[in-house]
Amino acid sequence: MSGKESEDQDLKAFEAALGSLRPRTDRLDPSFRAELVEEATGPHPQPLSQRERGETSGPLSLWERVASTSPLSLWERVRVRASGTHGKSPCTNPSGHCFLCIHCGSEAAMRGRGRSAWPAALVATASLSAVLLVLLLGERASQVERHEMVTTVAVPNDLSLADAVANDMRLAVSGFGTGNERILSAADWQLPDDVAPRGKFLVSRNTRSVKDMQTNEAAFTNHEFLRRLLKNPGADVDASDLPVPKPSNSAGSRS
């Protein structure tokens, strides 16, 4: 026999020896058993029949039909006596009463606490959302305030990328012929030439709106020039060797 088997057998033997101990019975009141039997033989609360409820005439309502067809349904009614305790003196327990399910015996108060977890979580989530919303609105308001304080400046003709970065410039493009304007992102400069944005470039300082941008047609109407600027930060780029774009009437100046 292996050690594990002998260990199990030993545990089973101990289990049997422990189980052979008999719980004390002398603490129970011997007269209570007779009282219990007497209580069990007495009248029991029964669900009220239709006749007992005094509804012997007339058609049954929908709820009464449901209750009459399902005796264990939620609509089950139990006869309630005036005393409520079958002739015993009313309960005066100062700590309150324990409500138990008549089917499973579980404590009703505990079930109630279990269900209340959802509203509590909902309230907490709503409160958190409200706080976040207030923070967001505050941040947005401060941004708008900062934006309104920014003054748009005239852009020099020979602006370099270093200057643009130092002066917190933003670049935008106004499409030739279409009139569409949008602020350029760094991703725009990674695009190949054939799909890179083309048009009249606008530059402005510290703003998110194309409408606020000052244009400089001489220096920023060429896409290749801007690519060179952004790929060689700080380098001097001579705009004279770049092809001059065709003048377009649709790309109006904002300066």
Binding site: H44, R79, G105
Partner: peptide, 12 residues
Amino acid sequence: FLLLVRQAMAPQ
């Protein structure tokens, strides 16, 4: 036990 006796419906 008293609660059990006083149940209108016996538990399963």
